[in-house]
Nucleic acid binder design. Sequence first.
DNA 1: CCTTCTCTCCAAAGCGCTTTGGGTTGCCCG
DNA 2: CGGGCAACCCAAAGCGCTTTGGAGAGAAGG
Lengths: 345, 345
Amino acid sequence: MNLKQLSESLGLSQTTVSRALNGYPEVREETRLRVLAAAEAASYTPNAKARRLATGRAMAIGHVMPLTGKEELVNPIFADFIAGAGEVYAREGYDLLLSMVPAEGTEAAYRQMAANASVDAVMVQAPTMDDPRVPLLQELGLPFLVHGRTGAPEGYSWLDVANIRAFRRATELLLDLGHRRIALINGQESLDFARRRRMGFEQAMGARDIAPNPLWMRSDVMTEQYGYRAACEMLDAHDRPTAFLASSIIPAIGIRRAAGERGLRIGKDVSIICHDDSLSYMGNEGTLAPDGPAFTATRSSIRAAGQRCAEILLSLIDDPTQPPIQELWETDLSLGRSTGPAPVG
Amino acid sequence: MNLKQLSESLGLSQTTVSRALNGYPEVREETRLRVLAAAEAASYTPNAKARRLATGRAMAIGHVMPLTGKEELVNPIFADFIAGAGEVYAREGYDLLLSMVPAEGTEAAYRQMAANASVDAVMVQAPTMDDPRVPLLQELGLPFLVHGRTGAPEGYSWLDVANIRAFRRATELLLDLGHRRIALINGQESLDFARRRRMGFEQAMGARDIAPNPLWMRSDVMTEQYGYRAACEMLDAHDRPTAFLASSIIPAIGIRRAAGERGLRIGKDVSIICHDDSLSYMGNEGTLAPDGPAFTATRSSIRAAGQRCAEILLSLIDDPTQPPIQELWETDLSLGRSTGPAPVG
DNA sequence: CCTTCTCTCCAAAGCGCTTTGGGTTGCCCG
DNA sequence: CGGGCAACCCAAAGCGCTTTGGAGAGAAGG
């Protein structure tokens, strides 16, 4: 069933039927109801492909997912972020177009999307300090929203968490617990959030006149093995940290593994604080009596961020001329069982 | 730049230019080269929306991602699976349309996709025993591929791993190590793979005349907390298992946490075998001298499965009349450090 | 009674591509 | 030399929708 058939069956023109269905005012209310009823009865759905061509709108949002590193790792936080964004898109009638490309092909992917207008806007994730995507998308005139910030966070829309404050506060907590030997297991420093978190760490340490040990500051792709290996090396050295600050729950799990293998008790011999994106399957919320959250963590739901990012992006499409929208989210510092007073000696 | 302009600039008809670009034989080679050069020079890209309308092909594959459970969990294995599939789609010029819907909305989502032909085929993930999506998609005439199988795996295409054999073999390994008190931390039994894995476990136990302890057989959404809580309960009982078989590395991490908190050494006091989907950030491959894989595991790369599933699905689109394609993948049983002889006493 | 709006509704022109159904040309062959 | 056949190329008809530019019918106004 298409518009033509539907309009013929109603004895109306395609114009009128189209307008009735799309809520235009040039059609009598009585007629509109008749059209809606007929459409419902015939279970008519406008052909999306035709509509896209006619309107020029793609009714789709592009997410370009770069496969990083030579092993082309897939960041698990994308799943939750996309889930959040996807809900909003679905609700608003937008499709989510996912494009998996090797890191070096991202520019081409965006150019392609802009050239044939296959999306109305794009979401930019995991921005680097000096991310080339920002100027590129501005040049292409494609509306976009950055989840995170670049080094120069002006002139474009973004949503980010207050990384500096989050890690400063986490560090202060460790310091208050008496820890002085604190390791930072960070993400890749090319990513803006990692740099900010390091700054937060350094600020808190500096405020107490403690010089961070450079051997205890690592930065890499945040896998479980990375956390594990880094912790192994540090814990096996004669001079070892009493606390770890990790940029994600994933490497934190690796740190826990390393500690566990060495018979070190978490929250007693070794403390861990991590940033927790509230990943579905890694649930660190546990409020059940005995088992509270496993990790003390700076928390911010990546899923909620995805939802809000989608909302902002859609509003950007509706009015591309509006001034940039920028949102900074505070994190929660939630106490779990992975922190305790620094061991004496 | 569109086809009309390009053809005018070349002094050719749209027909000829279109054919030249699309590799049809009715155009002289010399002309074709001229057209290709001009298109290249003008950086002409055919408008995807127009092409879709004209051809009727969506050049897109649908992935419907149900948000399960009341907390709408996002399964992290989807990220790696989609990454694998996405690579293939990109290579073949297909878009990946991701649709996030609450579990009860999946049927509507598929009907919608079929009705307005917004995708050429769909991928079905995590099938249940008696999955309604199979008959639905057959009714809708939408090509599809199931990753996994339903209870009645006939008459449609699928790709699955040999779950029964995988878990039978894993169980045999534990039995050979002297374990008799083995717990099964399985996925939801409504999912077909979980049932098969249980069967594998039971077969191996039965073959040695050992009756599994029903208290040690759990089945639920495979979160870290689920593994943790199940292990806590079992390990705190006076009668406790010496080995765990887990359906995913995620709950296995929870089991490890529970054991670690109780001072139990993994691979000594407690053995763990899990199924490992080779999730990027959970890398369990580690072949470096001291640290081998953390977990002994039945392994099968979910990413590779995604790639292969995409290839099969695309071939199904090319020829929808071909007989069903069914592929059963064997898993590797890779020894890690989480297994050891059953403790005596 | 005629003009001017306001309501409703319609015919037709796109959107940019693919594809059908021919037309020319030029060459080969009897 | 005329008919037949490739080889090339083209005009035009869609694909199914939106949207522009009216048109007809009453109602309101003078």
